[in-house]
Simulated scan of single mutants.
Amino acid sequence: MENKLIVSLSPHVHGGDSVQKNMYGVLIALVPAFLVSLLAFGLGALIVTATSVAACVFFEWAIVKYLMKKPATTVCDGSAIITGVLLAFNLPSNLPIWIIILGALFAIGVGKMSFGGLGCNPFNPALAGRVFLLLSFPVQMTSWPQAGQLMSYLDAQTGATPLAIMKEAIATHDSSVLANLPESLNLLIGLPDSCMMGAGSLGEISALALLLGLIYMLWKRIITWHIPVSILATVFVFAGIMHLVDPVYASPVTVLLTGGLMLGAVFMATDYVTSPMSKKGMLIYGVCIGLLTVVIRLFGAYPEGMSFAILIMNAFTPLINTYCKPKRFGEVAKKK
């Protein structure tokens, strides 16, 4: 029996989906990771996150109202709040407030509003802000406070991150250095082996908290599995091959659980605006991000490669969308 398209007159039932609903759904999914960051860094996590969110919302409101001369109705859609939270999740918990504000200005003013606002930006605004700060203030952006200093902010003691230890093992070609890494279970839950271990940025403390956010977004159908699963699977396979070739490279499980890999795969690479539209395109996009991340981590100058990998593939998204166009409805296939 042939399936026929039935076209009926209005009124039609609305699907209930909206930009605002999806944005606040993502914010709910970020709650577990935020709570873990508060448990790990306390006052520092609260100050950095509150400053970033407030600055992003303010700059979007000011730019829309006074520069674009439009009603500032988009401020309440949740996109500026998400940019603020994700920017904060990519920062150390002792970053000075003025640097956070500069990062928020770049993320909203340059990364988003200069292209026309939500839906027009080719690059993820939060990652654009993070990379801008990393290149402009490399010392402040790579000084990682040790976990457990709940009431410390600017005077918090810093330490080495798991990614720095992995990079040291590669640089010295000494696999014994990897013994200083926390256990995989501790990386999963978000508990360092010692308070002397710098945990990293706010959003990369607990892989489990980020996975809970992934499950929630999949349950609510905010995102699909294609991008996060393809990124994580590619990283696991590529890192596993490198570990088998030379034990100086960390195990694939450790690679998955360290740094901003999980945060980027779940919350940043899946950004609606900057990721491909088709399922095939999403898989290509995710595989390329995974490959680039491992290559930069293992052979690049920076210990972390997730931010750069996502931004690079953001630039290729229009090309992927062109290559992976879905078949037109009603088109008759040409006979060979």
Rank of each mutant, 00 (worst) to 15 (best):
F132H: 09
S136H: 01
L134I: 09
T142Y: 00
G117E: 02
N121G: 07
R130K: 13
S114R: 15
L105C: 13
L135C: 04
I100F: 03
V131S: 08
G103Y: 07
S114T: 09
A104Q: 06
F115A: 14
L134F: 03
C120M: 02
L133N: 02
P138D: 00
I108Q: 04
P125N: 13
L102I: 15
W144T: 06
I100N: 10
P122L: 08
L105D: 05
I100G: 05
L134G: 05
M113E: 15
I100C: 02
P138H: 00
M141S: 06
F137D: 01
Q146T: 13
F115S: 10
S143L: 05
G103R: 12
F106N: 11
F137V: 14
K112D: 12
S114E: 06
S114N: 07
F106M: 12
A107P: 03
A107V: 15
A126R: 10
F115P: 13
I108L: 09
G116D: 02
G129W: 11
F137Y: 12
G103V: 14
L133P: 05
L105V: 12
P138R: 00
W144C: 03
I108N: 02
L134T: 04
Q140R: 04
I101K: 00
S143C: 02
P138A: 01
F123V: 15
M141C: 06
F132D: 11
G109R: 14
Q140H: 08
W144Y: 13
L127C: 09
L135G: 01
S114C: 15
F137L: 09
V110Y: 11
F106C: 13
F132K: 00
G109Q: 13
P145N: 11
A126T: 14
P125M: 10
G103T: 03
P145F: 06
G129T: 11
P125E: 08
L127F: 07
L133T: 02
G117K: 01
I101Y: 03
N121K: 12
W144E: 01
N124F: 10
A104W: 02
Q146L: 08
F106R: 10
I100T: 09
G111Y: 14
W144P: 04
V110N: 08
P125R: 14
G116K: 07
P122T: 14
L134P: 00
L134A: 11
L133C: 04
A128L: 14
L127Y: 07
G109W: 07
V131G: 07
T142R: 00
A104V: 02
W144M: 04
G129Q: 05
G129E: 02
L127A: 09
G119K: 11
L105S: 14
L133I: 06
L105T: 10
V131K: 06
P138K: 00
K112I: 09
L105K: 10
F137N: 07
R130P: 11
P122D: 13
M113Y: 12
M113Q: 15
I108D: 02
I101G: 10
L118R: 07
M141Y: 02
